[in-house]
Design a protein around this nucleic acid. Structure first.
Length: 276
DNA sequence: ATCCTATCCTGGCTGC
DNA sequence: TGCAGCCAGGATAGGA
């Protein structure tokens, strides 16, 4: 599902197609796609605005808007489970799962396709305050092993749900959390304040290297859903060590990969490489 | 403070 | 071949 690498890939591919473009009109086909206000009010807020910058924060795609060169709020898009965002000619046939579209200039249209309808569009006056509660970005320089050590020690939660908590650390999802814990040799049920310093350091390195490698491969596509905005599947799923490999041999030690449920999430790990 | 459950959704899969 | 029932999962709300 779209996690940090998939959202980052989407932003990179969409940026040249959206920055500088004006939103000519908005059509909402599934009203609940709009969060926080009625579709008509949303349309009024974004139509006529220009996309100044397109960026990512956690798993949000953020389009900072402007009118007449001045800031005019922001459009936040969360893809959730099955959301896909792409630009195509307005005359291209509209997929039946398209929930919303924004007409751009030059006959192009930004379409939001979302089979399971969990994705959300949000117009906000102040993006910074809306996103203020999110944890640090793992690929920014401010995310340091020392910070992680202190932050883990300050909590007493099981490590996997903690890493999934967007207010603790931004952008991690079910797949990359399993992969990172495996690479770091940490059991998903380990209590955050009882992980030794060496493993915390490995976890910090794993988070950065796994996310970077996944971005390099344009994310993961393990079912029919995730595609880049250009319609291409990512290829990081070929690198999975544990996710979706239940019963298959660990690529490190050969032990069959175990699957348990932690915090309502399917969790994959190696009982030999990741001792409690 | 932390954990657990339900909710939102539907295509795809399993089992009969 | 058909169909009922289950599953996946990001975020959030409410209760324990």
């Amino acid at each position: 599902m779209p996690e940090l690498p998939e959202v980052e890939t989407a932003v990179r591919l969409l940026r040249p197609q959206l920055e500088g473009r004006r939103i000519a009109s908005a059509e909402v086909f599934w009203p609940r796609t709009i969060g926080g206000q009625a579709p008509a009010a949303f349309a009024q807020a974004v139509v006529g605005a220009r996309v100044a910058t397109l960026r990512r924060r956690a798993k949000y795609i953020v389009a900072d808007l402007e009118r007449g060169g001045r800031g005019a709020g922001a459009l936040l898009v969360h893809l959730r489970m099955t959301g896909r965002l792409y630009v195509e000619p307005a005359r291209a046939p509209r997929d039946k799962f398209v929930k919303l579209e924004l007409a751009l200039e030059k006959g192009k249209v930004l379409r939001f396709l979302d089979v399971r309808k969990f994705g959300r569009f949000l117009f906000v006056e102040d993006a910074a305050s809306e996103l203020a509660a999110l944890g640090p970005e793992p690929l920014e320089p401010q995310f340091k092993a020392q910070w992680l050590q202190v932050a883990l020690g300050a909590r007493k939660r099981r490590i996997k749900p903690l890493l999934l908590d967007q207010e603790f650390l931004a952008g991690m999802g079910n797949i990359y959390t399993d992969e990172c814990l495996h690479q770091a040799g940490i059991h998903p049920l380990a209590r955050s304040d009882r992980i030794d310093a060496a493993r915390v350091k490995r976890l910090h390195e794993a988070i950065r290297s796994v996310l970077r490698a996944a971005i390099q491969r344009e994310g993961s596509s393990f079912d029919v859903f995730y595609r880049t905005p250009e319609g291409q599947p990512g290829s990081y799923q070929d690198q999975f060590k544990v996710y979706g490999r239940t019963g298959k041999p660990c690529r490190v030690c050969g032990e069959p990969i175990a699957r348990v449920v932690v915090g309502q999430r399917g969790t994959h790990f190696c009982r030999r490489c990741q001792k409690r």
